[in-house]
Amino acid sequence: MDLFSQLAWGSTGWGDELAAGAVVTVSLALATLPFGLVLGFLLALARNSEVPELQHAGNVFTTIFRGLPELLTILIIYIGLDIMIAEVVSLVSDERWELNKFFAGMIALGIVFASFASETLLGAMKAIPQGQPEASRALGMSNFNTWRTVIMPQLIRYALPGLSNLWLVLLKETSLISVIALPDLLRMTNIAVGATKEPFFFYSVACLTYLAFALISSIALGAIERWANKGEMERGMA
C-alpha cells in the first residue's frame, strides 16, 4: 500500500485530520504567547523591584514552575482548576461545569513560559544601565515615556534571543497537551496510528511537521531580530 496516499485529504486519508491537529497546536502556542509574555513581564518587574514582598512573590512562583516537569504542571493545573471550579460552581448551582481543555493548556503552558521568560527579561532589565532612567527623569520625561522610548527598545533587543528560544520550546511543549486529550497534532497522529498501524510513518510526519514549524519560526524570529537590532547595525556601519 502506498504510504503517502494515507495523507490524502478527505475521507480516504488522514491529511485533513492531521492538518486540523496542526492548527490546534499552532493556535495553542500563539494563544499562550501573549499570556505568557505579559505574566513573565509582570514577574520580571516584581523580581526587579526594590520591594522585598514583590521580590518574594515573584521568586516563589518562578522557582516552583521552573522546577516542576511540564507534564506535572499541566496535570496539576488541569485537575486543580477543575476541582476549584467545581467547588465554586457547587456553591451557586447544581450544574456540572466542564473546564475547557484548550484554556487549561493555555494557562499551564503560559505559566511555565512566563517563569522562564521572567528570567530572560530580568537579565535584560539588569543589562540596562541605571543611569539611563535617571537621565530621562532628569530630562523631565514621564515614567511611561521613559519605558516606551528608552527602556523598551533595549529590553526587546537584549531579551529577544532568549525569548526566541523559549518560543521554540513552547512550540514543542504543546505536544504534552495531548495527554489531556486535546486534539493537537500529536493526538491526531496517535489516532491515525491506531487506525492504520503505521506508527513509524505517521510519527515521522508529525516530527517533520514540528521541524517545519521550528524552521518557519526561526526565519520569522530572525527577521524580528534584525528589525530590533536595526539601530545597532546602522551605528556599526557608520
Binding site: 514543542k172 505536544s175 504534552l176 503505521e198 510519527y203 508529525a206
Partner: peptide, 23 residues
C-alpha cells in the same frame, strides 16, 4: 542535532517505541 532539538521529546519517544514494532 537539528532533528533531536527541533522535535518534541514526546514525539521522539512515540516514534521509537511504537515505530520499533514495525521493524
Amino acid at each position: 542535532i537539528y532533528f533531536f532539538r527541533g522535535t518534541p521529546l514526546l514525539a521522539q519517544v512515540y516514534l521509537i517505541y511504537y515505530g520499533a514494532g514495525q521493524f
